[in-house]
Amino acid sequence: MAKPESFIVICPDSAKMEKLKEVLSPLYPKTLYASTIKDAEFKMENQNFPLFILDGTKPVLDKSSGIFAMAQKNFETKGKPWIVLNSGVESEDKFGIYPFVKFLPNDWNGETLYRFLDNVLVSEQTLMKTLIDVRFVNPIMSAVIEVLSTMAQVNLDKGAPYIRKKAEPPKTRGDISGIVAVNSDQFNGSLALTFTEPLALKIYNNMVGEDKTAIDEDVKDAIMELTNVIFGNAKRDLNKEGHSIRPAIPSLISGKNHEVRHSTQGHCLCLPFSGDVGELHVECMVSTP
């Protein structure tokens, strides 16, 4: 793995800062160190750090509400992983809400820190590689095409797949979405299928031979079931590639022109489809467990 250029380390305790410098400088000589939030924000400006290391020892966390503001402002928008050192119950309670935060407990040393850094960075890169791999993309795409064609006699055109990076806002909207958890030993995430209303109605009417003109409970039921079937078929083929994705029960969102917010925060594979009456946007968001 190519070593990242530098990290930023935020640690208000000068003795601990020295220990971190001693450990990190041989392998990561360009790492930047900040002792205050203000200092960190200044150093982070126009920089692209692959991850952030924060000392989480009490009472620093309790008194530094600025850290949480920074977590919202910088880390959600840039979506880079954090490592909280010296974590304890308090820091895990407070930072555990951020899916990109990894905790390294008090008894770390140089070796465990290096190993931890490598694992975090490798898992991020592995996830991205997985998402853009045709062996991941094709089973999902094929399941969508096959299920809609067989069950609803609806043939959609495939658009170009793309990756929406962690924390980039959704670019797509729709009127009804089926969502299902995509969890395995390697990653956690969700698959969302977002349909425009005309397409959802055409699918429903073709499936059951009715003539609905608006989304109702029956159409919602059908979209849930379609999500279930598409997920089941994609899962079967993905598991042949060794992913071990577990069974899950879908849920539903409906509402004119809504956007889907996934429960985990990670990179997102986006697959656009279009047909003569509407569009389908498929998103698969994954992050490390």
Binding site: M151, Y204, M207, V208, D221, M224
Partner: peptide, 11 residues
């Protein structure tokens, strides 16, 4: 458990 699937099978 899905009404839609029951309808499809019954049809």
């Amino acid at each position: 458990d899905f009404k839609t699937m029951r309808k499809i099978v019954i049809n």
